[in-house]
Design a protein around this nucleic acid. Structure first.
Lengths: 105, 105
DNA sequence: CTTTCATTTCAACGATTCTTGAAATAATAT
DNA sequence: ATATTATTTCAAGAATCGTTGAAATGAAAG
């Protein structure tokens, strides 16, 4: 992953609404959640929620699938994992202090 | 750490120049590096480097100390560690797939 | 005390992001 | 076909971000 790619992912995470969306989708689990439910959960208008969902989707942090009238969103951990690996291994050279943040404790 | 605090840290990381600065400071090690050296290393003008160093410093990702005429910057892993913990444990509920990204592999 | 060196600050500008509410689209039901 | 429901798209405007080059600051040397 290049610095530019990582920067785009960090940008996608650099908004409180979008972090709330991710947390909501983590709690929702593999079934995901419809756009309307997400909007209600994070307290945003439909268009505002849609804007942030699009940002997350563009970054590859969530996957979307139409189900009848609704649109179901699911979290995808691949990009987040790649980003953590970039930050930890590549950027920070496997710094020991950092590893303990994610390791067995 | 709140979503808003995490978002501010992610914003500080959401720029390729600033990621290059961090990488540079990781390589420099505990002695840190002077502003001029950092600017040269990342290929940015002094004022541009200073702008990004200030952003990193405001976010608490680097520490600064004046040494004679120069200003020495050092990476500080505390905030990065806190952010990784937020993302992994708090936001993603300790998701197992993610943990393997930072764990023993 | 003037000069030099290292860095930051500032103002101006363009670019990007976010919000809002209205209009458009998509799928379904009547 | 028309209406209803769920969501996205769009335009407008405010706010924030990033770049540039010039000016200001801080520290040391002559």
């Amino acid at each position: 992953m290049t610095e530019t790619q990582a920067a785009l992912l960090f940008a996608a995470l650099s908004n409180a609404d979008r972090l709330l969306v991710l947390r909501t989708l983590v709690e929702a689990g593999p079934d995901g959640m419809k756009a309307g439910g997400i909007a209600t959960q994070i307290g945003a208008s439909p268009s505002r929620a849609s804007f942030h969902l699009a940002a997350l989707s563009d970054a590859g942090l969530v996957k979307r699938e139409r189900q009848s009238r609704s649109q179901t969103y699911r979290i995808d951990f691949d990009q987040i994992g790649g980003l953590m690996r970039f930050l930890l291994e590549d950027c920070c050279k496997g710094n020991a202090t950092l590893k303990t943040c994610c390791g067995s404790n």
